[in-house]
Design a protein around this nucleic acid. Structure first.
Lengths: 125, 125
DNA sequence: CACCTGTATTGATGAGCGTCAACATAGACA
DNA sequence: TGTCTATGTTGACGCTCATCAATACAGGTG
């Protein structure tokens, strides 16, 4: 149960498209269901410690990092583990155990989807 | 005290640039202070009701909306007012009273800054 | 002035969250 | 097997938050 897909925030992106959960925030008012989905992602990044952990993973070589590489954020080890779990449950990270260490990696499609959410002009095709 | 700048999330953008609070999440690990700042914005959008309110304002004609236009989100009027205040405190919205009604409008530079935070490739100049 | 509508504030309540110490689990190695 | 390191889980504590009813405030109209 390492890379469990906990939330269907967005489809696995069949070809190369991103298949975001919702249109840009500025395109039309979000429905309740869309907001529920998208808010989970924003909420996951709404904690300073989680944001640092996520940034540490995202900026690490190869887009992945061992827990031991990123756990210097000023909180205890159980708290780090707890936050990484939250990021995983939000669909922002995946994890994989390799020997003694557990490596976390970003879900690039989610990052792109969130970026599109904040797009100003939809630029209709 | 209508358009009070509550948080110095980003500079007023002198020329036309955005002057974001922090580099893209993927560029390098965020510092504690950067994370504190950016997390406030994400946290503000981390509630479904607030996300709907923000989207309603952002997608409304002219980028602004009267409270009466967007308060149909399934919660009481005081709760709507409370969430709009939170969005304002996070620097995502500004408000202005015009006669009987209060109009909220998005801070476009903040939207752009958040979008840049989620940029995948920094595309070094 | 009084009255009405739109919006904000107050105070209370219950749920959720961030944090830690203690403990548990997984894998490597001898 | 036992032991060590890395990571996850449990349980508890205090704090924050989302929500509402009641109330207050602002501005318009009569």
């Amino acid at each position: 149960m390492s890379n469990a897909k906990v939330l269907p925030l967005l489809e696995p992106a069949d070809g190369q498209g991103v298949a975001p959960c919702c249109p840009p925030l500025t395109e039309r008012p979000m429905t309740a269901k869309e907001a529920e989905t998208a808010a989970r992602m924003f909420k996951a990044l709404g904690d300073p410690v989680r944001l640092r952990l996520f940034s540490a993973v995202a900026s690490h070589e190869g887009g992945e990092a061992c827990v031991c590489d990123i756990s210097d954020v000023g909180v205890s080890q159980p708290t780090v583990s707890h936050h990484l779990k939250k990021l995983k449950e939000a669909g922002l990270l995946t994890s994989e155990r390799r020997g003694t260490w557990v490596y976390y990696r970003v879900e690039p499609s989610v990052l792109a989807a969130m970026g599109k959410l904040l797009t100003i002009a939809p630029a209709v095709a």
